[in-house]
C-alpha cells in the first residue's frame, strides 16, 4: 500500500521539522497587555516603532487593566496598559513577587455623559444629579425625577458593562466607590452599541469614553457637568487643564524594571514617550501638557519606581504629583 507508506513518511518528516523548529527563536520582543482603553494608543506607538526599528517585535494584547496586571505580576509581560492607577491589592502582590515597576502617565481620557441631540431640556447635570441617577437601587425612573421642571418621560440609561475600565472609573468618580452602580440599564462592553442606543432614542442618557463621543459628535449631545464650579463641557481644553472634573482621568503604562535590562524595551519606552503626544491625539485621546511629559520623561530616565497613587483616588493634579515626587527625593 504505497499510498499509506507515503503518508507515514510525510508525517514523520513533518514531526521532525516541528521538533527542530522548537528551538527558541532569537527575535527581540516587547510584550504589552492590559486595558482596552489604552490599546489604541499602544497599538499606534507599536506600529510606528516597528516601522523604524526592524528586528524588534512588539505584541499588544487586550485583557483589561486588571487582567493585564495579573499577567504583568506573573512576569509574563514587560509593559501593562492601565486606565487606572495600580490598586492596593495589586501593589501588595507586586511587593510579594519582588516586582519593581515604573508608572508612566501617557495621556488623558475623558468620560462623556451624552444625550440624544433631540433632547432639548437637559442643559447640564450636577454631580449630585448624576449620582442620584446612577446610584445602586436608584429610584429615578423619569426625567422629572431628576429635576422637577423636566418632562415626565421615562429616562433610558446606557452604559458600559462591569468589565470595562470606564465603568470602574465612572462609578469611582461619581459614586465614590468603584463598582457601585444601578444595574437596570442597557449595558454593553461595545461602545458602538451605546453610541447607537443614545443616538436613536430621544429619552436616552449614557456615558462612555471621550474618543467615542469625538468620533460620533454629529449624532450625540454632550452634557456639561457641574461639580461645584459651574457646568463644564468636555473638550480637549477643559480636560487638559483639569477643569472637567471628575470625569477625566489619566492613562498609564506600567513598565517592569527587570525588563528594562533589555535594550529593546528601553528603546520602545523611549519611543513611546517621544511619540505619544502626537499619537494619543491621533487616536482620539487628549495629550498631557508638554510640562508633564517632560516630568514623565525625567521619571523614566531616573528609573523612579513605585506608584504615586497609593493614597489617592479620584481626580488628581498630575503635574503637582509628578513634580513633587521628583523634587522630593532629589
Amino acid at each position: 500500500m504505497p499510498e499509506g507508506k507515503r503518508l507515514w513518511w510525510g508525517l514523520c518528516v513533518l514531526s521532525l521539522g516541528m521538533v527542530l523548529g522548537c528551538a527558541p527563536s532569537a527575535n527581540r520582543q516587547v510584550s504589552v497587555d492590559g486595558s482596552s482603553t489604552v490599546y489604541p494608543i499602544t497599538q499606534a506607538v507599536a506600529e510606528d516603532f516597528q516601522a523604524t526599528h526592524p528586528g524588534v517585535f512588539v505584541t499588544v494584547g487586550i485583557s483589561g487593566t486588571g487582567g493585564g496586571f495579573k499577567k504583568f505580576l506573573a512576569k509574563e509581560t514587560d509593559i501593562n496598559d492601565a486606565s487606572r492607577p495600580i490598586k492596593p491589592q495589586e501593589l501588595q502582590r507586586a511587593q510579594e513577587q519582588g516586582i519593581e515597576f515604573l508608572e508612566l502617565p501617557i495621556a488623558y481620557d475623558g468620560i462623556t455623559v451624552v444625550v440624544n441631540p433631540q433632547n432639548d431640556w437637559v442643559d447640564h447635570l450636577t454631580l449630585e444629579e448624576l449620582r442620584r441617577i446612577w446610584a445602586p437601587e436608584s429610584s429615578v425612573r423619569t426625567w422629572k425625577d431628576v429635576r422637577p421642571q423636566w418632562p415626565n418621560r421615562p429616562i433610558k440609561l446606557y452604559g458600559p458593562g462591569t468589565d470595562s475600565g470606564t465603568f470602574d472609573y465612572f462609578t469611582e468618580a461619581v459614586m465614590g466607590k468603584s463598582g457601585a452602580s444601578r444595574s437596570d440599564y442597557q449595558a454593553s462592553e461595545d461602545d458602538n452599541v451605546l453610541v447607537r442606543g443614545v443616538a436613536t432614542d430621544r429619552d436616552a442618557l449614557g456615558y462612555f469614553g471621550y474618543s467615542y463621543y469625538e468620533e460620533n459628535k454629529d449624532q450625540l449631545k454632550a452634557v456639561p457637568i457641574d461639580a461645584g464650579q459651574g457646568p463644564v463641557a468636555p473638550s480637549p481644553e477643559t480636560i487638559k487643564t483639569g477643569r472637567y472634573v471628575p470625569l477625566s482621568r489619566p492613562l498609564f503604562i506600567y513598565v517592569s524594571l527587570p525588563a528594562l535590562q533589555r535594550e529593546e524595551v528601553v528603546q520602545f519606552v523611549e519611543f513611546y514617550l517621544e511619540e505619544v503626544p502626537r499619537l494619543a491625539q491621533e487616536v482620539g485621546y487628549i495629550p498631557l501638557s508638554a510640562n508633564i511629559y517632560s516630568l514623565v520623561r525625567q521619571r523614566f530616565q531616573q528609573r523612579r519606581t513605585g506608584t504615586l497613587f497609593q493614597d489617592h483616588s479620584g481626580p488628581v493634579d498630575l503635574e503637582k504629583l509628578l513634580g513633587g515626587s521628583l523634587s522630593q527625593k532629589e
Binding site: N27, A46, Q50, T59
Partner: peptide, 11 residues
Amino acid sequence: LTYVVFVPHSP
C-alpha cells in the same frame, strides 16, 4: 494576542 504584526517563525 490582539496586535501582532509578525509571523511566527517557530512554535
